[in-house]
Amino acid sequence: MNTNRPMLLALLATLCAGKAFSQDDDLLAGLEEAPKKEYVYNAFKSSRVIMTHSMELLRPGVLDFRILHRFGKLNQGAKNFYGLDEAWIRLGLDYGVTNNLTVGIGRSKYKQELDGFAKWRVIHQAKGPKALPFSLVLVGGGTLSTAPWADPTRKNYFTSRMAYYAQAIIGRKFSDKLTLQVAPTILHRNLTELKSDPHDLYAVAIGGRIGLSRRISLTADYVYVANQPRKELHHPFSIGFDIETGGHVFQLHFTNAFGMNERTMLSETPNSWGKGDVQFGFNISRAFQIGHKKKK
């Protein structure tokens, strides 16, 4: 009898089993989950940088109640308690219809203006397969003054109360610490303050965010109006801090922008940083999930 036969059979069985396990490993390796495209969110803490729209949209079913509050000019001194005796306000409601569509309405104290907008994300920045390096957001809106006519004796037209604007926001979140965006903008006014003023204003808004900590960011936006018609009007510039506390985003800022919607901001900014015509203000954003969360 050959005593080596059992040993040979055991060796063959071991080799076959090892090959089978190796084949199973190869099959499992082929079943590993492929990388997925990941969309980039939280480029800004809010749907606004400070004065201007940001590339960020609300999630579906989210209602954002916004309070924009602005005091008077700091250089008015103690007689006006450094601007704190004066106050201007805008109240607004923004709603996330879909993941890529946000709409909003608001009312400002100045000229008792109503405003509304629609914000649509065409391109969403993403990582992974078929990565998209930036976001493109289109915004269209309008304003309506409800204040009494300055001269009620003349023939006034309802359309003279209205203005419209459109802009394209191109932005990129470079990291959790840095976001930058640029937004070409056009504003049309049916009625201008002076006959010599152009009905259409062309502007470029630049905005950015620098993360200082998990809940605090430095934000700024600047709007260059290319065909500003009068020397006494200036380009709006705002700088401040975003503080996130749960469902709230609290913005503290300084600005020379008197108005709190696109019409007044672009066409009625008489304040100058160089002359100290700076206003302190704050914006409060409170988000409520009132609709069902939708899949992305």
Score class of each variant (00 low, 15 high):
Tyr82Ser: 02
Gly96Ile: 03
Val182Asp: 04
Thr146Tyr: 07
Trp88Met: 11
Val182Phe: 12
Tyr165Trp: 12
Pro148His: 00
Phe174Val: 13
Ala131Ile: 02
Ala183Cys: 09
Ser135Tyr: 14
Ala131Thr: 00
Glu113His: 01
Gly106Ala: 04
Val182Cys: 08
Asn80Leu: 13
Tyr164Phe: 14
Gln125His: 03
Phe117Ile: 07
Gly83Asn: 06
Leu138Met: 13
Ser135Asp: 11
His124Glu: 14
Gln76Leu: 02
Val103Thr: 02
Lys119His: 04
Leu91Glu: 07
Thr179Ser: 13
Gly116Ser: 06
Asn99Leu: 00
Arg172Cys: 06
Gly72Arg: 11
Ile123Met: 13
Thr98Gly: 01
His69Val: 00
Thr143Leu: 02
Gln76Cys: 01
Lys127His: 15
Val122Asp: 03
Gln76Arg: 07
Ile105Gln: 08
Ser135Arg: 15
Ser135Leu: 14
Phe158Glu: 05
Gly171Glu: 07
Lys173Ser: 06
Lys127Cys: 05
Val182Gln: 03
Ile123Phe: 14
Gln125Gly: 05
Gln181Leu: 11
Thr146Ala: 05
Thr179Glu: 06
Lys111Ser: 15
Gly171Pro: 12
Lys173Arg: 07
Ala183Trp: 09
Ser145Arg: 15
Asp85Lys: 15
Phe71Leu: 04
Phe134Arg: 00
Asp115Gly: 12
Asn75Gln: 09
Ala183Asn: 10
Pro133Cys: 07
Gly116Asn: 07
Lys111Met: 05
Asp176His: 07
Asn100Asp: 14
Glu86Val: 03
Asn99Ala: 15
Gly128Tyr: 13
Arg172Trp: 00
Gly77Lys: 01
Thr179Lys: 07
Asn100Pro: 05
His69Ile: 00
Lys119Phe: 05
